[in-house]
Design a protein around this nucleic acid. Structure first.
Length: 660
RNA sequence: GCCCGGGUAGCUCAGUGGUAGAGCAGCUCACUCGUAAUGAGCAGGUCAGGGGUUCGAAUCCCCUCUCGGGCUCCA
């Protein structure tokens, strides 16, 4: 080791000798290339400022600006700059919290006199932020005790609440994403004499490091996410390590907008939401109807092949059904209001399960029938608050590809494993592959039933996840009060997360409906019931498919698969015969008359994102061939025999096979 | 439901107190064309709906509906 006034630290496997009192920034200067773009340091695995004083023997690694952790720091620091800008521009504002989030950050404020931000304010705020960046203000960490921290944030009620929560040790400060350090230390980052913010850190050394950011939108947000508490004004922004990374992100946002299923739904003439019908209630046009039909037929066939039986149940029901099921007790606010008819009260069903239990219970069941797998594309109605409706992804009338499986306790684990394999195989058939699951476990504060039963069901779900080899996280205490479940999430082509399938082991309905089966011991036993929606809903899944494929649906799902275009009117009869031949072979083909130029018709077909365009001219009539213009290919292919094209369709256009 | 912002022709949008506009789409006619827009013409609007201010309202004010971005909730 060095002389007795020095320290030795390790970074990337190398040893560095530094004077005592040296900081991570000193190491960064000595540390070479890997430290060049460091915005913070990881010291003994803990995130620290570059100004952090190192100790002898520390293991220290750079946190580069472009890493996830580095971006986190950049975004958090940019959020502080946003707060300073707003406090400068609106003296007397209260600032609440400003954490980094995926791809950006936000900050919540309360403006004096209940004033609200408007979009135009973002320009002013951003300009002030750029001044702060240009000033190169330092981020200086200070540590206070609770008393002096409280004094520091006099007049800032939200900050004081955070300090109190942390000091009170009730753990309620823990969810506030690093605003305070633990153990009664109030850590603060100061930029100016008159601006400091409560924060655990770390931060970049200076605002000069920042600059590649953009404010995106304003929104309302409840303090601590609680709608009974004050609504604050939230500003969202994004921040990146470089101009190009910012530009790429903005490009991705534009791409996402171009893929928006609500926009493509209009452009491709798939569906719309007539105000005459009501919010969240879509109608499907012929093309969208065909897409639905293709999805649903595929689903029905796959379910039949996997040992399910199709059932059908009506949409309204007497209230007594939902009293028995418990829905009126715990789900009433999610249901359409009641209808009175001939002295009875009816409700539209919000779920299919009660009706499926009636089918199970319609006669005595033998263990030999189990597992009994009932499947329905069941349309349900839910009262969704107006603010949450979102195209097809969130509607008030939806069709679940719903199944309820009744099985004996000893079948449960195997049935769940089999079910999960089936779910994943189905999703893969639609071209989706990037899955993550969440296992939601019992909430000890809020559950009904026996703990041992919960454990049995949860273990069975875990077994299914493990045999499927699926990545999963455990959502401790995230289950609803009556059942543990697996939620399957996936990422689409541009990385957005969608929640799709849900598998739930129900401990309550079989009991509420007093379901039983006769076992080999000639005694009555209670079956388990598994709820499962695979697509989630047909509507939402359609939205996902449209966005995932950017409207260019795979051939097997394309409402129109082939457009046949005659070069001039002289070949229209031949074009019609090609359409006939394709239709006879089971393909969806149409044509467009030669009133428009060929270029215009090709353009139209391209904008409809059709997978195949066939152009037929005089040469093709003579030779019995077609010109093939495939979606996504650089140039068309001339003189292809119709047989060869049919063979191409056989490989490109057949629905996938579900191997489960 | 709450906060912010929208709603003008089928679509995308211009129009800030004084005679409702453009492009695309639609229709008609001409053109018959070899791979992403042929030309001309025509038609199309209770400016979301209701109320108010004003000599006069798409424009200003109020209410309602509806859409978008968020919060909360959720398939």
């Amino acid at each position: 080791m060095g002389d007795n006034s020095g320290i030795t630290v390790r970074s990337a496997g190398r040893l560095f000798e530094l004077p005592s009192g040296a900081t991570a920034a000193d190491l960064a200067r000595a540390g070479g290339k890997s430290w060049a773009r460091a915005v913070a340091a990881s010291v003994e695995g803990a995130p620290r400022d570059l100004a952090h004083v190192l100790s002898d023997g520390d293991e220290v690694e750079p946190v580069p600006a472009g890493s996830e952790e580095g971006r986190h720091v950049l975004r958090h620091s940019t959020a502080h700059v946003l707060a300073q800008a707003v406090l400068d521009l609106w003296p007397g504002s209260h600032f609440a919290i400003g954490p980094p989030i995926e791809d950006g950050f936000y900050y919540d404020f309360e403006l004096p006199g209940g004033e609200r931000f408007v979009e135009e304010d973002l320009v002013r705020i951003e300009a002030r932020m750029r001044e702060i960046v240009a000033e190169g203000q330092p981020f200086v960490r200070e540590e206070h005790d609770v008393a002096s921290g409280t004094a520091l944030f006099e007049g800032q009620p939200f900050k004081l609440e955070i300090i109190r929560a942390a000091a009170g040790g009730d753990g309620s400060g823990a969810g506030l994403d690093g605003e305070v350090a633990p153990a009664g230390v109030v850590s603060v980052y100061r930029n100016r004499d008159d601006f400091a913010d409560l924060c655990r850190g770390p931060h970049v050394p200076s605002t000069a490091v920042l600059g590649h950011f953009k404010l995106l939108r304003v929104a309302g947000a409840y303090w601590r996410g609680d709608e009974k508490r004050p609504q604050l004004q939230r500003i969202y922004g994004t921040a990146w390590e470089s101009k190009s990374a910012l530009a790429e992100h903005l490009q991705r946002l534009a791409e996402a907008e171009a893929r928006d299923h609500r926009r493509l739904g209009v452009e491709l003439d798939l569906f719309h939401f007539p105000p005459e019908i009501g919010s969240g209630l879509p109608v499907f046009h012929p093309r969208g109807g065909m897409l639905r039909y293709l999805m649903e037929e595929f689903s029905r066939k796959a379910h039949l092949a996997a040992g399910y039986e199709l059932v059908w149940t009506p949409h309204p029901s007497r209230a007594t059904l939902f009293e028995t099921s418990g829905h009126l007790e715990w789900y009433a606010e999610g249901m359409y209001p009641p209808m009175e008819m001939e002295g009875a009260t009816y409700y539209l069903k919000p779920m299919n399960c009660p009706m499926h239990t009636l089918i199970y219970g319609s006669r005595s069941r033998s263990y030999r029938e189990l597992p009994l797998r009932l499947f329905e594309l069941g349309t349900v109605y839910r009262f969704e608050r107006s603010g949450v409706l979102h195209g097809l992804a969130r509607v008030r009338g939806l069709t679940q590809d719903d199944s309820h499986i009744f099985c004996s306790p000893d079948q449960l684990a195997e049935e769940l494993a089999r079910l999960l394999r089936f779910v994943l195989a189905m999703l893969r058939a639609f071209g989706l592959s990037d899955f993550q699951a969440e296992l939601a476990t019992r909430n000890p504060e809020k559950f009904v039933g026996e703990v041992s039963e919960w454990e049995f069901a949860t273990d069975a779900l875990r077994h299914a996840l493990e045999t499927a080899g699926l990545d999963y996280v455990v959502g401790e205490a995230e289950a609803s009060f009556y059942a543990p479940k697996i939620d399957v999430h996936l990422r689409d082509a541009i990385g957005r997360r969608w929640q799709v399938s849900t598998l739930q082991v129900d401990l309550q309905l079989p009991q509420r409906f007093d379901l039983s089966y006769v076992g080999s011991d000639n005694a009555h036993h209670r079956p388990y019931m598994i709820h499962r929606a695979l697509f989630g809903s047909v509507e939402r899944f359609m939205a996902l498919l449209i966005e995932h494929h950017a409207g260019a649906l795979p051939t097997w799902l394309s409402p129109v698969q082939v457009r046949v275009l005659a070069v001039s009117s002289d070949q229209e009869a031949y074009a019609a015969s090609v359409v006939d031949r394709l239709s006879t072979s089971g393909w969806r083909a149409d044509t467009a008359s030669a009133d428009e130029t060929l270029g215009a018709r090709v353009r139209r077909a391209k904008m409809e994102k059709l997978p195949w365009i066939l152009v037929v001219g005089g040469e093709d009539v003579a030779a019995g061939t077609v010109g093939v213009n495939a979606r996504g290919s650089a140039r068309p292919e001339r003189g292809v025999s119709l047989e060869a094209f049919l063979a191409t369709l056989e490989t490109d256009g057949k629905p996938p096979v579900v191997a489960a």
